[in-house]
Simulated assay, not measured.
Amino acid sequence: MTMQATEPQAARLLLLHTAAVHIARFEALAQCLAPGLPLAHRVQPELLDLAREQGLGSVELQAGIDQALADARASGAAVLLCTCSTLGGLVEARAAAAMAEFPGLRALRVDRAMCELALAHGPRLLVVAALQSTLAPTLSLLQAVAEARGQVLQARTLLVSEAWACFEAGDEAGYLATLRVALRNALAGAGNDAVDAVLLAQASMATLADEDWPRPVLASPAPGLAAALALLESGL
C-alpha cells in the first residue's frame, strides 16, 4: 500500500488526503485559522482508486480506511479530517463504528460544513464534480443536512469528467480552466435565479470559489478545516 506521510509528533489534527496537492492548501489555511498549530498529513491515493474501481462497499477499501484510522490514533491524533469527498462519509461511518476500538479519535468529512453553508443560501443547489464517484456521497450528505434543516433539497449536478485528466496529469491550470468554462456555461444556461448556491464537490476545486460569480460558489477546505479545528478545541 502506497503511503506518503508528514507527521509532526505534536500534531493532534491529522488530514487524510488522496492527492499530495492538498497539503500546501490546507497548511496555508491552517496558518490563517490557527497559526502555529501543527498538522499531520497522510496521502493515500490508493483508497480513491479502490473506491472508483470497486465501489464504497469494497471490503478492501473498508479495511484500508480502518487501517488509516488505527494509524491516526496510534500517532496521537484526536481528530482526523478526510479531505476526499468520495471517501468522507465512509471514513466518518467507519470511525463511528470503531469508537470503542479507537477511543478519543473523531473523524470528520471535509465537505460537511460546506453543505451546511450552502443550504443556508437555499435548497436550489448546483453540485460540481470532476469524478462520478464524488456525486452520490455529496448528494447523500446534502439530503441528510436538508432534512435536518426541514428543507426540501432541489439539487442538480454538473459532472465535468474531462477535467479529471488534467488533474491526474498535474495540470492544475487546465483542470481549473475546464471547470470554470463548464460552470459558467451551466449557470448561463440555467439562469442565475434558478440556483441559490454552487458547491464545488472536490477540495481540489477550491481556487474557483475565490473568483467572481453571479451566485455564491462554495468550496470545502476552509469551512471543513474550521469545523475540524472547532472539534479539536471542544475536546469531544
Rank of each mutant, 00 (worst) to 15 (best):
V79R: 03
L80M: 05
L80A: 00
L80S: 01
L81H: 05
L81D: 04
C82K: 03
T83E: 00
S85V: 01
S85D: 01
T86F: 09
L87I: 10
G88E: 08
L90S: 08
L90F: 07
L90I: 06
E92R: 07
E92K: 05
A93D: 07
R94V: 10
A95N: 01
A95F: 05
A96W: 10
A98E: 00
A98F: 06
M99C: 11
A100N: 03
E101L: 00
E101S: 01
F102G: 00
P103E: 00
P103C: 01
P103W: 04
R106F: 01
V110P: 04
D111K: 03
A113Y: 08
A113P: 10
A113R: 11
M114N: 07
M114Y: 05
M114K: 06
C115F: 04
C115L: 01
C115I: 02
L117W: 02
L117N: 08
A118R: 10
A118Y: 06
L119Q: 02
A120Y: 00
H121I: 00
H121F: 08
G122S: 06
G122K: 06
P123G: 03
R124K: 10
L125D: 08
V127Q: 05
V127Y: 05
V128D: 00
V128C: 06
A129S: 13
Q132P: 04
T134Y: 03
L135Q: 13
A136H: 11
P137D: 07
T138V: 14
T138G: 01
L141E: 08
L142T: 12
L142E: 05
L142F: 10
L142G: 09
Q143R: 14
Q143M: 11
A144I: 03
A144D: 07
V145T: 15
V145P: 12
V145S: 04
E147S: 14
A148D: 15
R149N: 10
V152E: 07
L153P: 14
L153I: 01
A155H: 03
R156E: 15
T157W: 12
E162T: 13
W164T: 08
W164Y: 15
W164A: 09
W164D: 14
C166K: 14
C166A: 14
F167N: 15
E168V: 13
A169Q: 15
G170P: 12
D171A: 02
E172N: 12
A173M: 07
G174Y: 09
Y175E: 09
T178N: 12
T178C: 15
L179Q: 11
L179A: 00
R180D: 09
A182H: 10
L183E: 02
R184V: 12
R184A: 02
A186H: 01
L187N: 04
A188V: 07
A188T: 13
A188W: 13
G189T: 14
G191F: 04
N192M: 01
A194D: 04
V195L: 02
V195W: 00
V198R: 08
L199W: 09
L199C: 14
Q202A: 03
S204E: 13
M205F: 12
M205G: 05
M205Y: 10
A206N: 15
A206V: 12
T207V: 11
L208P: 11
A209I: 13
E211C: 02
W213L: 06
W213V: 10
P214Y: 10
R215F: 01
P216T: 11
P216A: 08
V217F: 00
L218T: 04
A219I: 11
S220A: 15
P221C: 01
P221T: 14
A222S: 03
P223V: 04
G224L: 04
G224Q: 09
L225T: 15
L225A: 00
